[in-house]
Nucleic acid binder design. Structure first.
Length: 839
DNA sequence: ACTCACCGGGG
DNA sequence: GTGTACGGTGAGT
């Protein structure tokens, strides 16, 4: 546990970060506009439901809309009139809402309170609350319509004057409660379900099987053998979910596929989707849909988000996208690929082509059951791998867990925490958008490419958390954050994260404690990294401050410059630098100790609070372009960064050549480069390589129909290869191999050799009659050697050797990668050197 | 050949 | 009721 010193500022900082109400075990909150909140709490395997009242509230920059009519006008319904009243004790913290609206009308009807807050005149200086949100909204809307003398339909049109959040956020911000206090991720009851359907479109297909599992031991399938049985199947799903009573429902693409499909089928069949927990009336909550806009601007997309009382709905696809947003190295976001990427796919996992699932089910239902259960098991694995941090965030930020799992870290998480702090302190909220003197041009981090070529003895050093450290060290926060909440939170997070990192390292690996501390430090990292981005956010962010953000990047560039200057002074050879990190080469004969000593010496000269870290050392580096390089570790692993050094075609012979040539180049073995190149050319010309070595593997995107429509205007090799092989059926998404044989545009399809690559099993069965390919024949095709040799020699040079161009002088490059005999004026290969980057 | 729009996922 | 982007590909000239 993290010890805390009992001091008032620390107490306040903890409240900023974690809220203040100690209620433990909240696993779900449902709040409505009428001021009713329902809270589900878990204690062991027991879940209790309680009800609470809250007073819907918002921040306002003006009271004009509430005071503009003093007596109820004839055309306004009685319900929207105002009655002055003292707030009673029943409202928690009601003392903060005691001022009555002066001189408002008072007929029977609703009560609205307000409190004037401390703050500048252009801020949201009033906190307004009412018994019921609709009362509040109606009063403001009709007041504004009167004041502005035009029809106003909703608060949306008054964004300038009012700041509001959703009902659950209102409840959590006001009460100081958060989710999951005292719970571990393993305590959550999580259930995964996955639909198997006869088509992707619910108008054309139906559900025939549902796999369900949970982390309390359930793993089963529900099935509908006939179309007439589908309604019963949906009912059985709802019953089972209510019986198991999970806190969380999860699946991959839950919001994009399973729930819309389920909703449509339930609608057609007239089955209620009672997936939620029981509400006070005794009825089970029904699935609700909400529209959600993702991103703003030209690329804005809408999606439907679903919600249900009492359970959190989690789409692991969101978590995957977020993970890749940071990592940027995932091949695809499909469940199967992602499971393999994380190493959570089991060895005997069943793979089926999507379009073949239903047919397979009719022949062999057991296989489809296993397949679907493998799916939900992988979703559980993904959840454990990816949702720990959102879980930890939910015990800090005043939002639902399901929202924190996909919310943007700045506007979606950090800002609600700031608003909660201002609400708690009773201080006016700054208004967004009116930033004076728009900072001229925003300059970001510095990127330098100092040298291209090959370096030996390379060290990577970088400044740990550069931007947040600068914010803390120089106390650069948003000018409008009068309470200094952002910097407080940031400082506290930095300390706590360090402690959690240490705790995670000392706990037994894989233990509940280790997972908890690791998830918490990951959550804190998300918030820490969001702090700078939030200041630079657009005008929609309440506390955005582009000048402060510029100040941070300016100081960041200065720090980087200081590091680079120091390295140069010490005679290091700079290679490339980007924002907060640098690659450089050290002199021959240097030891790791010397490298580390240099980094810490330079780091010691940096301002207090800015830490330069020794991140790694490499035997060699090929610098190609900014952010495009290859590294060779001291244990001889090759690491390739950036698209410029990768091949998208991935023909095995080319990949192999590139790896070997990179290794030789980086170890200075230029004869080796020439040798590998000539050997590859020779293997092509002697047809030692087989078709399988040359085949490109691509993913099909067109259906047979759509390809046939454009075949004559734009033939594509992959489809041509299939058609020539007699295959007239395939599925978009299928990956196929093909190679180019002798003869004009003669592309040959190469069936997969083993059954392990799932993609082809199904169509092979379907096409078996059409084309009569036996396993032996498959092997025979893969071993064919009738490829177009000169085409592949050209590919070798233009597509693979090309990636080594920066490593050599132009004439040396041409000589090294000439497939022909040495020319008259060629120099001996032994005398060719790569372009060295040296001290 | 080149630009523009759209998609990514799910059966 | 609120906040990614980037690379690949298809369609349209």
């Amino acid at each position: 546990m993290i010890s805390s010193i009992n001091s008032a500022p620390l107490e306040r900082e903890n409240e900023y970060l974690f809220g203040w109400d100690p209620t433990p075990g909240i696993v779900s909150v449902w709040a409505q506009r009428d001021g009713q909140a329902i809270i589900w709490q878990r204690e062991g395997e027991h879940v209790t439901r309680t009800e609470a009242r809250f007073y819907p509230w918002l921040f306002a920059s003006t009271l004009d809309d509430l005071t503009s009519f003093r007596t109820p006008p004839d055309n306004v319904a009685a319900a929207s009139t105002l009655r002055v009243s003292q707030a009673g004790r029943k409202y928690p913290g009601a003392d903060r809402l005691v001022n009555a609206v002066p001189g408002s009308g008072h007929s029977n009807g609703a009560t609205i309170w307000y409190r004037e807050l401390d703050g500048p005149s252009d801020a949201y200086r009033y906190l307004i609350a009412a018994r019921d949100w609709r009362t509040l909204e109606r009063a403001i809307v009709s007041g504004a319509a009167r004041r502005l003398d035009r029809p106003i339909k909703s608060l949306n049109e008054l964004e300038d004057s009012y700041y509001r959040v959703g009902p659950v956020e209102q409840y959590l911000m006001y009460s100081g409660r958060v989710y999951f206090r005292g719970l571990n991720y393993e305590d959550l009851h999580r259930l995964q379900f996955d639909l198997e359907t006869t088509a992707l479109d619910p108008h054309r297909g139906r559900i025939f099987l549902i796999a369900i599992r949970d982390n309390r031991g359930l793993a089963t399938t529900l099935e509908a053998s006939t179309p007439e049985d589908e309604a019963r199947l949906i009912g059985a799903l709802c019953d089972l979910i209510r019986e198991r009573d999970p806190d969380v429902i999860e699946n991959h693409n839950l919001f994009g596929f399973d729930l819309p499909f389920l909703e449509q089928r339930a609608r057609v069949l007239g089955v209620p989707l009672a997936l939620g927990r029981q509400l006070p009336g005794g009825r089970a909550a029904v699935l609700e849909r909400l529209q959600e806009t993702l991103a703003i601007g030209p690329d804005a997309r809408r999606r439907t988000r679903y919600s249900v009382a009492g359970r959190e709905l989690i789409d692991t696809l969101d978590a995957v996208r977020r993970h890749d947003f940071v990592m940027r190295d995932m091949p695809s976001y499909s469940l199967k690929d992602v499971a393999r990427y994380f190493g959570i796919a089991s060895a005997d996992r069943v793979y089926l082509e999507g379009a073949a699932i239903f047919d397979t089910y009719r022949r062999d239902p057991a296989t489809v059951r296993r397949y679907a259960l493998d799916d939900v098991a992988e979703v559980d694995g993904l959840s454990r791998r990816l949702l720990g941090a959102p879980f930890a965030l939910a015990s800090m930020a005043p939002r639902r867990y399901e929202r924190l799992a996909s919310a943007g870290p700045a506007m979606g998480i950090l800002e609600p925490m700031l608003v909660r702090a201002y609400l708690r302190a009773g201080v006016a909220l700054p208004r967004q958008g009116n930033q004076q003197g728009e900072a001229a041009m925003h300059e970001g981090g510095a990127v330098h490419l100092f040298a291209t070529g090959v370096a030996e003895r390379v060290v990577k050093a970088d400044v740990a958390s550069l931007y947040p450290s600068l914010m803390c060290t120089f106390q650069i926060g948003p000018a409008r954050d009068r309470l200094g909440v952002l910097l407080s939170i940031l400082g506290r997070l930095t300390d706590l994260r360090l402690a959690h990192k240490v705790a995670a390292r000392t706990a037994r690996p894989g233990s509940i404690e280790a997972n908890h501390h690791d998830a918490t430090q990951a959550a804190m990292k998300i918030l820490i990294n969001a702090a700078y981005g939030y200041m630079g956010a657009g005008s929609m962010a309440l506390f955005a401050d582009s000048r402060a953000a510029d100040e941070v990047t300016r100081r960041g560039r200065a720090i980087l410059t200081q590091v680079l200057d120091a390295l140069r002074q010490h005679g290091m050879a700079l290679i490339e630098a980007d924002t907060d990190g640098v690659y450089f080469a050290v002199p021959a004969g240097w030891t790791e100790e010397q490298e580390r000593a240099l980094v810490s010496k330079i780091g010691a000269e940096l301002p207090e609070g800015i830490h330069l870290e020794y991140e790694g050392r490499y035997r060699a580096m090929l610098s190609h372009e900014v952010k495009n390089y290859a590294l060779l570790t001291y244990d001889s692993r090759l690491i390739v960064h950036g698209v410029a050094l990768r091949s998208s075609r991935a023909e095995p012979f080319g990949e192999r050549f590139l790896r070997q040539a990179l290794l030789c180049t980086m170890t200075g073995d230029i004869p080796g480069v020439r040798k590998v190149f000539l050997e590859t050319v020779a293997a092509l010309r002697s047809r030692t390589l087989t078709a399988a070595d040359l085949a490109a593997r691509v993913r099909l995107s067109k259906t047979p129909e759509s390809y046939l429509a454009i075949k004559n205007t734009r033939p594509e090799p992959a489809y041509e290869a299939l058609l020539r092989a007699g295959r007239t059926r395939w599925y978009p998404g299928e990956r196929v191999r093909f190679y180019r044989a002798r003869g004009k545009n003669n592309y040959v399809w190469l069936p997969e050799e083993t059954a392990e690559t799932s993609t082809s099993n199904d169509w092979l069965e379907r096409n078996e009659q059409d084309i009569a390919v036996t396993p032996e024949q498959r092997g025979a095709i893969a071993g064919r050697r009738d490829y177009d040799v000169e085409h592949y020699v050209r590919t070798l040079v233009t597509s693979y050797a090309e990636r080594l161009r920066k490593a050599f002088a132009p004439e040396d490059f041409d000589q090294l990668f000439s497939p022909d005999q040495p020319g008259l004026f060629d120099r001996p290969v032994e005398s060719i050197e790569p372009v060295w980057i040296r001290c």
